[in-house]
Protein backbone atom coordinates (compact mmCIF):
# COMPACT_ATOMS: atom_id res chain seq x y z
CA UNK A 1 0.00 0.00 0.00
CA UNK A 2 0.95 3.61 -0.35
CA UNK A 3 2.64 5.67 2.34
CA UNK A 4 3.57 9.33 2.43
CA UNK A 5 7.25 9.57 3.32
CA UNK A 6 8.78 12.85 4.33
CA UNK A 7 12.53 12.81 4.75
CA UNK A 8 14.66 15.67 6.10
CA UNK A 9 12.20 18.06 4.46
CA UNK A 10 13.18 21.72 4.75
CA UNK A 11 11.58 24.86 3.34
CA UNK A 12 12.78 28.42 3.70
CA UNK A 13 10.74 31.46 2.73
CA UNK A 14 13.38 34.14 2.50
CA UNK A 15 15.13 34.01 5.84
CA UNK A 16 12.25 32.34 7.64
CA UNK A 17 12.42 28.57 7.99
CA UNK A 18 8.90 27.17 7.72
CA UNK A 19 9.80 23.49 7.75
CA UNK A 20 12.96 22.30 9.43
CA UNK A 21 14.47 18.88 8.66
CA UNK A 22 11.16 17.12 9.03
CA UNK A 23 11.07 13.33 8.84
CA UNK A 24 7.96 11.20 9.30
CA UNK A 25 5.80 8.67 7.50
CA UNK A 26 2.05 8.42 7.11
CA UNK A 27 0.97 4.78 6.91
CA UNK A 28 -2.09 3.27 5.29
CA UNK A 29 -5.07 1.90 7.16
CA UNK A 30 -5.19 4.51 9.87
CA UNK A 31 -6.00 8.15 10.35
CA UNK A 32 -2.96 10.26 11.13
CA UNK A 33 -3.77 13.53 12.87
CA UNK A 34 -1.46 16.37 11.90
CA UNK A 35 -1.26 18.85 14.76
CA UNK A 36 0.52 22.03 15.64
CA UNK A 37 -0.25 25.70 16.17
CA UNK A 38 -0.79 28.10 13.27
CA UNK A 39 2.47 28.65 11.47
CA UNK A 40 3.94 25.35 12.63
CA UNK A 41 4.35 24.26 9.03
CA UNK A 42 1.44 21.85 8.52
CA UNK A 43 0.05 23.46 5.38
CA UNK A 44 3.53 24.09 4.01
CA UNK A 45 4.39 20.42 4.48
CA UNK A 46 1.25 19.41 2.59
CA UNK A 47 2.06 21.80 -0.27
CA UNK A 48 5.58 20.41 -0.43
CA UNK A 49 4.25 16.84 -0.57
CA UNK A 50 2.05 17.87 -3.50
CA UNK A 51 4.94 19.57 -5.30
CA UNK A 52 3.18 22.95 -5.24
CA UNK A 53 6.03 24.56 -3.37
CA UNK A 54 9.62 23.60 -3.98
CA UNK A 55 11.55 22.19 -1.03
CA UNK A 56 14.77 23.89 0.02
CA UNK A 57 16.08 20.48 1.03
CA UNK A 58 15.02 16.91 1.70
CA UNK A 59 12.31 14.93 -0.03
CA UNK A 60 8.63 14.09 0.13
CA UNK A 61 7.33 11.05 -1.71
CA UNK A 62 4.09 9.17 -2.14
CA UNK A 63 4.54 5.44 -2.59
CA UNK A 64 8.25 6.14 -3.09
CA UNK A 65 7.78 8.66 -5.90
CA UNK A 66 7.57 12.44 -5.93
CA UNK A 67 4.01 13.65 -6.49
CA UNK A 68 4.99 15.54 -9.63
CA UNK A 69 6.09 12.29 -11.28
CA UNK A 70 2.72 10.56 -10.80
CA UNK A 71 0.60 10.09 -13.92
CA UNK A 72 -3.04 11.02 -13.34
CA UNK A 73 -2.23 11.88 -9.71
CA UNK A 74 -5.84 12.47 -8.67
CA UNK A 75 -6.38 8.72 -8.96
CA UNK A 76 -3.62 8.14 -6.43
CA UNK A 77 -3.83 11.12 -4.09
CA UNK A 78 -6.74 13.33 -3.10
CA UNK A 79 -6.05 16.58 -1.31
CA UNK A 80 -8.07 19.37 0.24
CA UNK A 81 -5.76 22.32 0.80
CA UNK A 82 -7.89 25.41 0.74
CA UNK A 83 -11.63 25.39 0.30
CA UNK A 84 -11.44 28.82 -1.35
CA UNK A 85 -9.19 27.52 -4.12
CA UNK A 86 -11.84 27.31 -6.82
CA UNK A 87 -13.05 29.85 -9.35
CA UNK A 88 -16.22 31.38 -7.95
CA UNK A 89 -17.88 31.83 -11.35
CA UNK A 90 -17.78 28.14 -12.14
CA UNK A 91 -20.51 25.78 -11.01
CA UNK A 92 -19.55 23.08 -8.55
CA UNK A 93 -20.23 20.46 -11.23
CA UNK A 94 -17.97 22.15 -13.79
CA UNK A 95 -15.24 22.63 -11.20
CA UNK A 96 -15.21 18.89 -10.53
CA UNK A 97 -15.54 18.15 -14.24
CA UNK A 98 -12.31 20.06 -15.05
CA UNK A 99 -10.50 17.91 -12.48
CA UNK A 100 -12.03 14.66 -13.68
CA UNK A 101 -11.33 15.43 -17.34
CA UNK A 102 -7.65 16.16 -16.80
CA UNK A 103 -7.04 12.83 -15.07
CA UNK A 104 -9.16 10.64 -17.32
CA UNK A 105 -11.76 10.08 -14.61
CA UNK A 106 -15.25 9.20 -15.85
CA UNK A 107 -17.61 12.18 -15.77
CA UNK A 108 -20.06 10.01 -13.81
CA UNK A 109 -17.79 10.25 -10.77
CA UNK A 110 -18.68 13.94 -10.55
CA UNK A 111 -22.30 13.21 -9.60
CA UNK A 112 -21.20 10.44 -7.25
CA UNK A 113 -18.87 12.63 -5.21
CA UNK A 114 -21.33 15.54 -5.26
CA UNK A 115 -23.91 13.26 -3.67
CA UNK A 116 -21.35 11.76 -1.29
CA UNK A 117 -20.39 15.24 -0.12
CA UNK A 118 -24.02 16.23 0.37
CA UNK A 119 -24.00 18.66 -2.56
CA UNK A 120 -26.19 16.58 -4.89
CA UNK A 121 -28.85 19.26 -5.20
CA UNK A 122 -26.53 22.27 -5.66
CA UNK A 123 -24.11 20.97 -8.30
CA UNK A 124 -25.42 23.48 -10.83
CA UNK A 125 -24.91 26.48 -8.56
CA UNK A 126 -21.95 28.77 -8.91
CA UNK A 127 -19.31 28.34 -6.26
CA UNK A 128 -19.38 31.98 -5.20
CA UNK A 129 -22.90 31.45 -3.85
CA UNK A 130 -21.63 28.69 -1.53
CA UNK A 131 -21.15 29.07 2.21
CA UNK A 132 -17.78 28.20 3.70
CA UNK A 133 -19.17 24.85 4.80
CA UNK A 134 -20.40 24.05 1.29
CA UNK A 135 -17.04 25.01 -0.19
CA UNK A 136 -15.41 22.73 2.31
CA UNK A 137 -17.66 19.90 1.19
CA UNK A 138 -16.84 20.69 -2.44
CA UNK A 139 -13.13 20.56 -1.62
CA UNK A 140 -13.61 17.14 -0.07
CA UNK A 141 -15.62 16.00 -3.09
CA UNK A 142 -12.69 17.12 -5.25
CA UNK A 143 -10.28 15.18 -3.06
CA UNK A 144 -12.33 12.01 -3.44
CA UNK A 145 -13.03 12.25 -7.16
CA UNK A 146 -10.27 9.89 -8.24
CA UNK A 147 -11.03 7.27 -5.55
CA UNK A 148 -7.47 7.80 -4.25
CA UNK A 149 -5.40 5.55 -1.99
CA UNK A 150 -3.96 8.56 -0.21
CA UNK A 151 -6.12 11.35 1.20
CA UNK A 152 -4.73 14.58 2.68
CA UNK A 153 -7.12 17.05 4.24
CA UNK A 154 -6.01 20.40 5.61
CA UNK A 155 -8.41 21.61 8.31
CA UNK A 156 -11.39 19.81 6.77
CA UNK A 157 -13.87 20.70 9.49
CA UNK A 158 -13.28 24.41 9.07
CA UNK A 159 -16.63 26.16 8.62
CA UNK A 160 -18.67 22.99 8.84
CA UNK A 161 -21.83 22.77 10.92
CA UNK A 162 -22.13 20.07 13.61
CA UNK A 163 -23.59 17.55 11.12
CA UNK A 164 -20.70 18.30 8.79
CA UNK A 165 -18.15 17.70 11.52
CA UNK A 166 -19.69 14.34 12.31
CA UNK A 167 -19.72 13.55 8.58
CA UNK A 168 -15.99 14.33 8.29
CA UNK A 169 -15.23 12.17 11.31
CA UNK A 170 -17.11 9.20 9.90
CA UNK A 171 -15.68 9.78 6.44
CA UNK A 172 -12.04 9.74 7.52
CA UNK A 173 -12.66 6.68 9.72
CA UNK A 174 -14.27 4.93 6.75
CA UNK A 175 -11.44 5.87 4.38
CA UNK A 176 -8.83 4.52 6.80
CA UNK A 177 -10.96 1.42 7.36
CA UNK A 178 -10.82 0.76 3.61
CA UNK A 179 -7.03 0.66 3.94
CA UNK A 180 -6.32 4.13 2.61
CA UNK A 181 -3.62 6.43 3.88
CA UNK A 182 -5.29 9.39 5.60
CA UNK A 183 -3.59 12.54 6.86
CA UNK A 184 -5.80 15.16 8.48
CA UNK A 185 -4.44 18.42 9.81
CA UNK A 186 -6.19 20.37 12.50
CA UNK A 187 -5.58 22.68 15.36
CA UNK A 188 -8.72 21.51 17.14
CA UNK A 189 -7.75 18.91 19.71
CA UNK A 190 -11.14 17.47 20.61
CA UNK A 191 -11.94 17.16 16.95
CA UNK A 192 -8.71 15.32 16.18
CA UNK A 193 -9.04 12.99 19.15
CA UNK A 194 -12.39 11.84 17.76
CA UNK A 195 -10.87 10.28 14.63
CA UNK A 196 -7.07 10.00 14.80
CA UNK A 197 -5.21 6.73 15.45
CA UNK A 198 -1.79 8.23 15.09
CA UNK A 199 -0.39 11.69 15.69
CA UNK A 200 2.26 13.80 14.04
CA UNK A 201 2.80 17.04 15.95
CA UNK A 202 4.83 19.96 14.61
CA UNK A 203 6.18 23.01 16.39
CA UNK A 204 8.03 25.76 14.54
CA UNK A 205 8.51 23.51 11.54
CA UNK A 206 10.06 20.69 13.54
CA UNK A 207 8.75 17.27 14.47
CA UNK A 208 7.72 17.07 18.12
CA UNK A 209 5.73 13.84 18.22
CA UNK A 210 5.20 10.89 15.89
CA UNK A 211 3.40 8.13 17.79
CA UNK A 212 0.06 6.37 18.23
CA UNK A 213 -2.48 8.66 19.90
CA UNK A 214 -3.00 6.19 22.76
CA UNK A 215 0.73 6.17 23.54
CA UNK A 216 0.84 9.93 23.37
CA UNK A 217 -2.04 10.27 25.84
CA UNK A 218 -0.47 7.75 28.22
CA UNK A 219 2.93 9.38 28.02
CA UNK A 220 1.38 12.69 28.95
CA UNK A 221 -1.10 11.51 31.62
CA UNK A 222 -0.59 11.52 35.35
CA UNK A 223 -2.60 8.56 36.59
CA UNK A 224 -5.49 9.21 38.91
CA UNK A 225 -9.08 8.18 39.61
CA UNK A 226 -12.35 9.92 40.30
CA UNK A 227 -14.89 8.34 42.57
CA UNK A 228 -18.13 8.88 44.50
CA UNK A 229 -18.99 7.14 47.73
CA UNK A 230 -21.67 7.14 50.39
CA UNK A 231 -19.04 7.23 53.16
CA UNK A 232 -16.53 9.92 52.26
CA UNK A 233 -15.06 10.27 55.74
CA UNK A 234 -14.17 6.60 56.17
CA UNK A 235 -12.80 6.37 52.64
CA UNK A 236 -10.75 9.52 53.11
CA UNK A 237 -9.16 8.08 56.28
CA UNK A 238 -8.41 4.78 54.53
CA UNK A 239 -6.80 6.62 51.61
CA UNK A 240 -4.74 8.85 53.88
CA UNK A 241 -3.47 5.75 55.71
CA UNK A 242 -2.29 4.38 52.34
CA UNK A 243 -0.47 7.62 51.61
CA UNK A 244 -2.88 9.04 48.98
CA UNK A 245 -4.10 12.58 49.08
CA UNK A 246 -7.78 12.63 48.13
CA UNK A 247 -9.31 15.94 47.20
CA UNK A 248 -13.02 16.68 47.10
CA UNK A 249 -14.41 18.39 44.03
CA UNK A 250 -17.35 20.76 43.88
CA UNK A 251 -19.65 18.12 42.47
CA UNK A 252 -19.19 15.72 45.40
CA UNK A 253 -16.68 13.60 43.54
CA UNK A 254 -13.31 12.76 44.99
CA UNK A 255 -10.13 12.89 42.94
CA UNK A 256 -7.18 10.71 43.94
CA UNK A 257 -3.96 11.57 42.16
CA UNK A 258 -1.42 8.83 41.56
CA UNK A 259 -3.87 5.99 42.16
CA UNK A 260 -5.19 3.35 39.77
CA UNK A 261 -8.77 2.15 39.66
CA UNK A 262 -7.60 -1.38 40.56
CA UNK A 263 -5.92 -0.27 43.80
CA UNK A 264 -8.80 1.91 44.97
CA UNK A 265 -11.46 -0.63 44.05
CA UNK A 266 -9.74 -3.38 46.05
CA UNK A 267 -9.09 -1.03 49.00
CA UNK A 268 -12.73 0.00 49.15
CA UNK A 269 -13.85 -3.63 49.04
CA UNK A 270 -11.52 -4.63 51.90
CA UNK A 271 -12.74 -1.69 53.96
CA UNK A 272 -16.34 -2.45 53.12
CA UNK A 273 -16.97 1.07 51.76
CA UNK A 274 -19.58 1.24 48.98
CA UNK A 275 -18.41 3.04 45.80
CA UNK A 276 -21.06 4.60 43.55
CA UNK A 277 -18.61 5.51 40.81
CA UNK A 278 -14.97 4.74 40.08
CA UNK A 279 -13.25 6.02 37.01
CA UNK A 280 -9.63 6.05 35.85
CA UNK A 281 -8.72 9.47 34.59
CA UNK A 282 -6.87 9.86 31.37
CA UNK A 283 -5.64 13.09 29.92
CA UNK A 284 -7.62 14.41 27.00
CA UNK A 285 -5.69 15.14 23.83
CA UNK A 286 -5.97 18.82 24.64
CA UNK A 287 -4.39 18.33 28.07
CA UNK A 288 -1.67 16.09 26.67
CA UNK A 289 -0.94 18.60 23.92
CA UNK A 290 -0.77 21.50 26.34
CA UNK A 291 1.47 19.42 28.60
CA UNK A 292 3.74 18.81 25.62
CA UNK A 293 3.81 22.42 24.58
CA UNK A 294 4.53 23.66 28.12
CA UNK A 295 7.68 21.51 28.15
CA UNK A 296 8.83 22.57 24.72
CA UNK A 297 10.70 25.83 25.00
CA UNK A 298 9.88 26.84 21.46
CA UNK A 299 6.25 27.01 22.43
CA UNK A 300 6.87 29.20 25.46
CA UNK A 301 5.92 32.38 23.67
CA UNK A 302 3.26 30.74 21.50
CA UNK A 303 -0.27 30.95 22.76
CA UNK A 304 -2.47 28.03 21.88
CA UNK A 305 -4.33 29.06 18.74
CA UNK A 306 -8.02 29.76 18.72
CA UNK A 307 -10.29 28.84 15.89
CA UNK A 308 -8.70 30.94 13.18
CA UNK A 309 -7.63 29.36 9.94
CA UNK A 310 -3.99 28.90 9.20
CA UNK A 311 -2.82 30.92 6.23
Amino acid sequence: MTSIDVHELTKDYGTKRAVDHLTFSVRPGRVTGFLGPNGAGKSTTMRLVLGLDRATGGSATIGGRPYTSLGNPLRRVGALLDAQAAHGSRTARNHLLTLAASNGIAAGRVEEVLVEAGLGSVGGRRIKTFSLGMRQRLGIAAALIGDPEVVMLDEPSNGLDPEGIIWIRELVRKLAGEGRTVLVSSHLMNETSSFADHLVVLGKGRLLVDMPMRDFLESRSRPGVRLRTTEPTRLRDALLRKGYEPAQGDDGCWAVAGASAEEIGVLAAIEGIPLLELMAEQATLEEAYLDLTSTETEFAATKFPLADQEA
Binding site: L50, L52, T68, L81, N103
Partner: peptide, 9 residues
Protein backbone atom coordinates in the same frame (compact mmCIF):
# COMPACT_ATOMS: atom_id res chain seq x y z
CA UNK B 1 -3.02 24.98 -6.60
CA UNK B 2 -6.05 22.91 -7.45
CA UNK B 3 -5.05 22.89 -11.12
CA UNK B 4 -1.47 21.87 -10.44
CA UNK B 5 -2.61 19.17 -8.05
CA UNK B 6 -4.52 17.68 -10.98
CA UNK B 7 -1.73 18.32 -13.52
CA UNK B 8 1.57 18.49 -11.63
CA UNK B 9 3.68 18.94 -14.76
Amino acid sequence: RTSLTAVPS
